[in-house]
Amino acid sequence: MRETLRVHMGWLHSWVGFLAGLLLVLVFASGTLAVFDTEITQWMQPEVSLTHSTTLTPAALQAAAQAVQAEEQKGLSAFLTLPSDRDPVLQVLHYDGYEFVGTALESTTGALVPARETAGGQFFYNFHFSLRGGNQPGVQIVTFLGFCLLVAIGSGLVIHIKALWPDLILFRPFGPRPRAWLDAHLLAGVLFLPFILFMGYTGTAIHARVLLPAQPGLPRIMAGRTRKKKPYPRGVFYRRGHYRRLLRPSSRRPVRFCKVRMAI
C-alpha cells in the first residue's frame, strides 16, 4: 500500500484512538454521571428529606460551627456548604483524598441527619478526573489520555477533512456491517466534533500542570543535593531578613544560597 498522508494518519488515529479510548470511555461515562452527583447522592441517601426549608437559623449555624470545630480537633480541614434548592441540607465536609465527605445538618434546627455513609455521586466525580488514583498517577493518566484524545481528533480531522460535509448526511445502516459502523462513527464524530474538541481541550488544560509541573528539573535536583551539604559553622550569626530572602520558594537558583550564606 502506498504510504500516503491519509494512511499514515489513519494508523495514528486507529491506534491512539483505540488504546486511549479503552480508558476514555470510562472517563466519559463517569463524567456524564458526575453532572448529577448531588442527585445521585440524594438517591443513595433516602434518609435525607428534600422538603426542608433552605433558610438558615442561628441554632443551625451554631451546630455547624461546633461540628466544624470537632472536625478541626481531629486534624481535618472542614468547611460548610450552605443549603440550596438543589441540596437543602447544611453540610460540614472535608476531603478524604477521594471525596468530600462529612455530616449533614438540618438547616432549621441544626439537628444531625442520620444519613448512611456513602460516596454517592462524588465517586463518579472523582473517578472522572483521577480514576480514583489520586493526584499521582490518577490525574496524570487522565491528562495524558486527554492529550491522546486531542491527537486522535486532530488526526481524524486530517483524514476526513475533504469529506466533512458529505459525512454529515451519509449513513448506510443496511450496508455491510463495517461500512455501517464506519458511517455511524463518522456521523457522530463530525456532528459532535465541537463538543468533543472543547471538552477534551478544557479538561486537558485544567490539569496540564499536574502532568508537566512548572518546576525546572535540574535545579530541583541541585536543590536536593545542596540540602545534604555540611551544616552551618558554629558561632556565625545570621540575620533573619537574609534567611527570609534566601529561603523563599521563588528563589530560582538554590546554588546561590550557599554562596551568599558563606559570604555573610
Binding site: 494518519m9 492529550f147 486531542l150 491527537v151 486532530g154 488544560a205 485544567i206 496540564a208 500542570r209
Partner: peptide, 17 residues
C-alpha cells in the same frame, strides 16, 4: 501555570501531529 496549561494543551497535540 493555568496560562501555561492552556498553551501546552493546544500546542502538544499540534506538535505531535
Amino acid at each position: 501555570t493555568d496560562l501555561g496549561g492552556m498553551v501546552i494543551a493546544a500546542l502538544v497535540p499540534m506538535l505531535v501531529l
